[in-house]
């Protein structure tokens, strides 16, 4: 596997010259099997890591190790990067990979009315249920702001699963339980709609 990496990387570099901010450290190779050489994830298998905040990534590994996030594969894989130095290196590496670009991120207030219920939730929230707009913390078009993770272009299955896991109490550990507090109020249709909306941003690819 390791022997093949340089070749794979060379191919990826040709296809997308700016795709690698730094060389992949050997410790990060284990992740790339599912999360991809470019860190963009794999449909129905693994989420995109590229462009997420390093601190956020590191914290997620911690949550898997402490059982606050549960996933049979990730619990096992997290153990392979549990050493603080390795965890830091791996987190920083994936954080440095570029995520698909959103040409002109949409700010709250850019649109006044919405035809899609999911987009309305994303930019205006639903305060009758104390649900703030997603973009308040996750940024314009959900491109992520600091430790508030990027949603734009994230794998659809993954976004839906996280919201459902929070809703069902299977995921915890986020600051102030902010997301579980929100997710329990979302309907199944809303979760589907939000996952669909954010995963297809940017709609035009890279």
């Amino acid at each position: 596997m390791l022997k093949r990496l340089p070749v794979l990387m060379f191919g990826a570099l040709l296809a997308s010259p700016s795709a690698f901010a730094q060389d992949m450290p050997p410790t990060a190779a284990v992740c790339s099997g599912c999360h991809g050489q470019n860190g963009w994830g794999l449909a129905n298998v693994a989420p995109m890591l590229a462009g997420l905040d390093a601190g956020y990534l590191s914290q997620q590994i911690d949550l898997f190790l402490t059982g606050k996030r549960k996933d049979p594969i990730m619990t096992a894989m997290s153990a392979t990067v549990s050493d603080p130095a390795i965890r830091k290196q791996v987190s920083e590496y994936y954080a440095s990979l570029p995520a698909p670009k959103v040409a002109k991120p949409e700010q709250r207030g850019d649109r006044v009315s919405f035809t899609s219920a999911a987009e309305k939730l994303a930019y205006q929230g639903d305060w009758d249920r104390n649900i703030p707009a997603c973009a308040t913390c996750h940024g314009p078009s959900g491109v992520g702001v600091d430790h508030f993770p990027r949603l734009a272009g994230q794998q659809e299955y993954y976004l839906a699963k996280q919201l459902n896991d929070w809703k069902q109490g299977k995921r915890s550990g986020d600051p102030l339980n902010m997301m579980s507090h929100i997710a329990v109020q979302l309907t199944t249709d809303e979760i589907k709609g939000l996952a669909g909306f954010f995963s297809t941003l940017p709609s035009g690819g890279q």
Binding site: C137, G139, V143
Partner: peptide, 18 residues
């Protein structure tokens, strides 16, 4: 968590305060 330990809130990569 949101307003930062130093009270300066959080900026995005675009330099804007969120």
């Amino acid at each position: 968590t949101c307003h930062s330990a130093d009270g300066q809130g959080i900026r995005g990569n675009d330099g804007r305060s969120y």
